[in-house]
Each structure stands twice: as C-alpha cells, then as structure tokens.
C-alpha cells in the first residue's frame, strides 16, 4: 500500500524523561490518514509513554507533535481541545467502575462534546451493539469479562469520533481466550478507516492489521516499514534480537 495522504499525527524529535530516567530519546514517526501504525518493542521501551505524550497526558521535554498539521505540544495549546480529537484505549481498560457500561461510553460525549443525552445514548447503544455488547448497557463494568470491558473501553474511545485512536497494549491484561474478541473489534475499526497507533505485543496481529510497523528500542525508533519487511527481514540488529526473543517465548 502506498503511503499517501496527509499525516494525521506527526511526531518529531520527541524526548521525555521522568526525573533522571530518559524514556524517549528523539522519536520521529508519522501516521497517515486511515493508516494503522503498530508500535512494537520490549516492555519499558517507551511505547506507553509515547502514546501518553501524544494524548498530552504527559508533557514532552523536547521536539514537537502535530495533529492534522498543527502543533499540539506548544504550551499555548489547550490540552482539552486536543484530547477531544483523540481517543485512547488503556491496557487496564480504566473503565469508570461507578457508572454503567452505557454511562461510560456517553460521559465524554455529554460532558465534553456537549451532545444531548438522548442523542449520545442512542449513539452509545449503537456502538455497544457494534462491538457485541448489546444488552449489557446497564451492567456495571465489574460484571463483564476482561474482553468485554476492553470492548467497552474501545467503544468509549471511539464515541468521540476521534481523528485517531491510540491503543496501548489493549490485549496484555487479558486471559488468552479473550484476546481474539478484542482484536476483532480493532479489525473492525481498521476496516472502517480509523487512523490508529497500536502499541502491541501481538506480532501476528501487527502483521495483519498494521500498514506500518515501528520498532521502539531504548526510546528510539530503530526501524520502521511495512510489517512484512520489519517483522520478516529486519535490517537492524536490535530488531532481529527482539524478534528472536519473542519467537523463543512463543509469542510471534
């Protein structure tokens, strides 16, 4: 697939340290419209931090991030307006336990996007049905399986009609038999043309759904390109070693 179209997200030379510990050392990458980029790399390589920086949940130290060509990491840009254009799905779901499934999905719509209750709930119900959760609207999150909770979280992130979705290891907290249903939901989003950044450990899934794979190692993108090339004929020594370790662990 030709990489065309204007980039929705551009990350330029981003660095981020927590105290003395530098997590990102100058990360560069683009995500074009309707494209899915899979971020791979060992635990602690900075994948989550990078996603959190894009959603302005962390402040970057250097570099810039652009959304639809406009810089979002300038201190003068209000973070709330930026976050309303992005959706995030967290590894641990982070559903609101005191709210019903439907309330979880419509909260942002009603409070942030100022959509009326009736319209928000109608859309919310449709979204939940789309991700196989019809009939669970009034349940509490704790009454759902991990896979169902993560699909609610996907519906919640998608409800705000974001320009791009950021998925942070969305299957890592799940029992193996529940991974499939969540990946199915992501496939559905990809088929609908959603622009996505997917931090993942699921190499087979990255190969299938991503247009591009970027390998993050010690806070830098060491290698990126089409999945086939990065995952099967990696140029960089670090990528080869990482993939070999995954193979040994039976994850690829």
């Amino acid at each position: 697939m030709a990489r065309g179209g204007p980039p929705v997200i551009e990350v330029r030379g981003v660095t981020k340290a927590f105290g003395e510990r530098e997590v990102l050392h100058g990360v560069d990458f683009d995500v074009a419209e309707h494209e899915a980029v899979a971020l791979i790399g060992a635990s602690g390589s900075g994948k989550s931090t990078l996603l959190r920086c894009i959603d302005l949940l962390e402040e970057i130290d250097d570099g810039d991030i652009f959304l639809d060509g406009e810089v979002i990491t300038d201190p003068s840009v209000p973070p709330v307006a930026v976050r309303r254009k992005l959706g995030v799905v967290f590894q641990a779901y982070n559903l609101f336990p005191h709210m019903s499934v439907l309330q979880n999905v419509v909260l942002g719509q009603m409070r942030a996007q100022k959509v009326g209750r009736r319209e928000a709930e109608e859309e919310g119900r449709a979204l939940l049905a789309r991700f196989g959760l019809a009939g669970r609207e009034d349940d509490r999150p704790e009454e759902l399986s991990g896979g169902q909770q993560q699909r609610v979280a996907i519906a919640r992130a998608f409800a705000g009609k974001p320009r791009a979705l950021l998925l942070d290891e969305v299957t890592s907290a799940l029992d193996p038999e529940l991974v499939g249903e969540v990946l199915e939901a992501v496939r559905d989003l990809k088929a609908a043309g959603m622009t996505m950044v997917i931090a993942t450990h699921e190499m087979a899934f990255a190969r299938e759904v991503a247009d591009e794979v970027a390998f993050l190692h010690q806070g830098r993108i060491v290698e990126s390109g089409p999945p086939r090339q990065v995952l099967e004929e990696p140029h960089a020594e670090e990528t080869r070693r990482f993939l070999a370790r995954l193979l040994e662990a039976g994850r690829a």
């Binding site: 959190r52 959603d55 949940l57 973070p79 709330v80 976050r83 309303r84 992005l86 959706g87 995030v88 967290f90 982070n94 559903l95 609101f96 909260l107 942002g108 409070r111 942030a112 996007q113 979280a153 919640r156 992130a157 409800a159 705000g160």
Partner: peptide, 9 residues
C-alpha cells in the same frame, strides 16, 4: 487519565 482522554477538563 481515562476521564481526560475522553475530553473532560
């Protein structure tokens, strides 16, 4: 984090 990510202040 989740509340901010759906656009809340």
């Amino acid at each position: 984090d989740a509340a901010l990510s759906v656009g809340l202040t």
